[in-house]
Structures are given as structure tokens and as C-alpha cells.
């Protein structure tokens, strides 16, 4: 089985789907000839032509707005937003249009657009190349939000997204675009949207993460293991919908939960997870659920590694949870 990185997995999924489904169209800034600033669409322009791999003007509202029009007409557009920090010019199109078309038309006009966008910090990108905006979109009824953490999941989840009929925000962890590598089947396979993955089984603490934070969580779990603490690491994979059954299966076993996310703490998705867990598993909880998050500051440049959760901070939270 070939070993791929996340960029290659995205590229492979897009190529497979474009070969299988002629209605699939890629569009965005620099995605054509150049193959995207992260090279995720590299080679697609050569294989499928400028009609299906469209270099657009620099206007996110136009990229998403025209993708919506194409989807209404029956195509399968896959727009790329170059950095998720630049998604806000299209926020209205995503929130008020894309996510509401099926609902407001009573099901007459589905709008299956899959928006790919790199998220997260750790690349020395400052405020505007580092954000993790998932909460804004999870909070938007009508939108699915998928956040893979590794190449295998990326390919399987992206293929699933491209073959279902709802709009999706597909968040790609840019810090580990190339660093994250694993074995990826060459051909076709899909992973179910809404199902988590237990990346490391354990018994004492449930550690929940997604996207670029899964590798941090694993690192913390390994350190905890060395200290004699057994941690179960869950990779949510999909945030809307999220896998409550999988979460509860772990939480009812461990009774202790730490949630890790890169996005700011207040109103971050961790808050929703805590609410959902305590509603359903109060009697199993041995300690308050704790969070290791980005701070409620804009994403910084020089001090980005202070801002981002790291294994030591996560380990600290694990210890505190156990000591409670």
C-alpha cells in the first residue's frame, strides 16, 4: 500500500472522483495551472482541463457564490478557499445561501458543494494564515463539518463528502499537510461521515481531539502512558454531525474527559461536547471535563507555540483530571 501525505491524499481523492463523476468541478484561486498554493490540486488541470479545474478571480464570495449556482444546476463543485482565514468574504454565501438552500426550497434545490480549506496554525502564519473557524460553521444549520487528521482519513472522508448530497466544510490540517503520513489504499474507499476513530485505546481518561490536534493528543497519551496513565484518544473526524455514541462509549468507561482544540476556548466546539456529554453521562463522570484550547486572543505570530495546545499542556490537564 502506498504511503501518502495529506496533500497527496486530497489530490488522489479529487482525481478519483473527477474520473468517476464528470460533474465534479474544482474551482478556486490558483488551483488550476499552478495546482494550488499547497499543491493539493496539482495535475488536475492537466488531466481534466481548464473547464473542470477553474482558476477564478480573487473573490471568495464569487468562488462560493458561483459554486452554489453550479450545484443548483446539478454539478458537483469542490471549491478551495486558499486559507480558512479568508473564508469570511464568503461567510454570507455559506451561512445564508449554501447551508439554507435545501431547507428553504423544501428539498427542491439541494446544494451539494464541498468546500475544502486548510485550517490551523503552527506554520508561522500569524493572524491570517492560522485560524480554526469550525465553530462558526458547526453553528450553521444545514452544513456538515468534517475535519480529518491524517492521509488515510482524508481520502476516505473526502470521497464520502463528494458522494453525498449536502454541503460540507472540509477542513484540512495545514501544519501537518506533508508531515502526516500513513498508508493509503490506492483505489476507492470511503469512511462514514459522523463516526469517530479510536486512535489509541485506554482506560483512565478520554482525550478528544480532531484535525491538527490529534497528533498532539497522541503525543500526550504516549507521555501519560510512560507515567503509568492509560489514555484513550478519540479522533472525532467529523464535527457536524459528531459521534455521540462513540464518545459516550469511551466516557462511560473512563469517567474522565479532556478535550483539545486549537480554536479559542470560549464557545469553542469543546463547550458543546461538554454540554452533550454531561447531559447523557453525568452519573459516569468522576471529574469535571476539562479543555486545552487556543486562547481567546487573535492567533499570534511570534508566540504561536504558546498559543497552540501542546503535549505538555494536555498532559497537565490529564493529571489534573485524575487528581480531582
Amino acid at each position: 500500500m502506498p504511503v501518502m501525505n495529506i496533500i497527496q491524499a486530497v489530490n488522489d481523492a479529487l482525481r478519483l472522483q473527477m474520473r468517476a463523476e464528470p460533474k465534479t468541478v474544482v474551482l478556486g484561486e490558483d488551483v488550476g495551472k499552478f495546482g494550488g498554493v499547497f499543491r493539493a490540486t496539482s495535475g488536475l488541470h492537466e488531466e481534466f482541463g481548464a473547464e473542470r479545474v477553474i482558476d477564478t478571480p480573487l473573490a471568495e464570495a464569487g468562488i462560493i457564490g458561483t459554486a452554489i449556482g453550479m450545484a443548483l444546476y446539478g454539478l458537483r463543485p469542490v471549491p478551495e478557499i486558499q486559507f480558512s482565514d479568508f473564508i469570511y468574504p464568503a461567510f454570507d454565501q455559506i451561512v445564508n445561501e449554501l447551508a439554507k438552500f435545501r431547507y428553504r426550497s423544501g428539498g427542491q434545490y439541494p446544494c451539494p458543494v464541498v468546500i475544502r480549506t486548510p485550517v490551523g496554525g503552527g506554520i508561522r502564519g500569524g493572524h491570517y494564515h492560522s485560524q480554526s473557524p469550525e465553530t462558526l460553521f458547526i453553528h450553521t444549520p444545514g452544513l456538515k463539518v468534517v475535519a480529518p487528521s491524517n492521509p488515510y482519513d482524508t481520502k476516505g472522508l473526502l470521497l464520502s463528502c463528494l458522494r453525498q448530497n449536502d454541503p460540507v466544510l472540509f477542513m484540512e490540517p495545514k501544519r501537518i499537510y506533508r508531515a502526516s503520513k500513513n498508508e493509503v489504499p490506492e483505489g476507492d474507499y470511503t469512511l462514514e461521515i459522523g463516526k469517530l476513530n479510536v486512535v489509541r485505546p485506554g482506560t483512565q481518561v478520554t482525550l478528544i481531539a480532531w484535525s491538527g490536534m490529534v497528533s498532539i493528543a497522541e503525543e500526550a497519551a504516549i507521555k501519560a502512558d510512560a507515567a503509568g496513565i492509560s489514555v484513550e484518544v478519540l479522533d472525532l473526524r467529523s464535527l457536524m454531525p459528531f459521534d455521540i455514541v462513540g464518545i459516550l462509549a469511551s466516557v462511560t468507561k473512563t469517567g474522565r474527559v479532556v478535550i483539545v482544540h486549537e480554536a479559542p476556548r470560549t464557545c469553542g466546539f469543546g463547550a458543546e461536547l461538554i454540554a452533550s456529554i454531561q447531559e447523557r453521562a453525568m452519573e459516569h463522570l468522576e471529574a469535571p471535563i476539562s479543555r486545552v484550547c487556543g486562547f481567546d486572543t487573535p492567533f499570534p505570530y511570534t508566540l504561536e507555540h504558546e498559543y497552540m495546545p501542546n503535549a505538555d499542556r494536555v498532559l497537565g490537564a490529564i493529571r489534573q483530571t485524575l487528581e480531582w
Binding site: E51, G65, T66, M70, L72, P77, E97, R104
Partner: peptide, 24 residues
């Protein structure tokens, strides 16, 4: 196509529908 109350959001959709016609 069903409109939203949001002024002008539909104009890029019209262009996208037209792009879709040509692509299809």
C-alpha cells in the same frame, strides 16, 4: 430558483448556474 431575503447574494448564483450550463 428560490430566493433568500439577502439582497444581491443571488447574482453570483445566476453566474454559477450559467457556468454550470456551459460545463454540462
Amino acid at each position: 430558483v428560490v430566493m433568500s431575503s439577502c439582497v444581491s447574494t443571488q447574482i453570483p448564483h445566476a453566474v454559477g448556474v450559467a457556468m454550470g450550463m456551459r460545463l454540462a
